[in-house]
Simulated scan of single mutants.
Amino acid sequence: MPSYAYRCRSCGDTFEMNRPMAEASAPAACPAGHDDTVKLLTTFGTVTRGGGGGAPTPPAPSGGGCCGGGRCG
């Protein structure tokens, strides 16, 4: 079951709730009982290990600047 993060606007407490995806946008009361809460945007990352066959995926190019490597201008 997914975990969703919320912040209470009344007391500022941040908390998580495990609930089905179908209830993700349902109101959530904070542990102190306040009803004025907002769902926070959370990120999820995964790490995969090799072993799937084939060649490994090369790393993404790195660099700085607005054009992906500083070649602006």
Rank of each mutant, 00 (worst) to 15 (best):
C72G: 11
C72E: 15
C67W: 04
S10W: 00
E23D: 15
Y6I: 06
M17G: 02
G50C: 09
F15T: 11
P56E: 08
S3T: 15
R19P: 01
G54E: 02
N18A: 15
H34D: 04
R49Q: 11
G52V: 04
P59G: 06
G53M: 05
G68P: 01
P58L: 07
A5Q: 07
G33E: 07
V47S: 09
M17H: 10
G73Y: 05
S62G: 14
A32E: 14
S25T: 14
C30N: 06
R71C: 15
A26G: 01
G50M: 07
T43H: 03
M21P: 00
K39P: 10
T42C: 09
S25Y: 09
T43W: 01
F44Y: 09
C72L: 04
L41G: 13
P56L: 08
S25C: 05
D35C: 08
E23S: 14
T48M: 07
S25P: 00
M1D: 12
G63N: 02
G51P: 01
G12M: 02
G73T: 11
Y6D: 05
G52F: 08
T46F: 04
E16M: 12
V47T: 13
T43G: 11
T43C: 05
T48R: 10
P2H: 06
T57Q: 11
T14N: 09
C66T: 12
G52Q: 06
S25Q: 11
M17W: 05
K39H: 11
D13Y: 03
M21D: 12
G64W: 03
G65Q: 04
T14I: 12
P58G: 10
T48E: 15
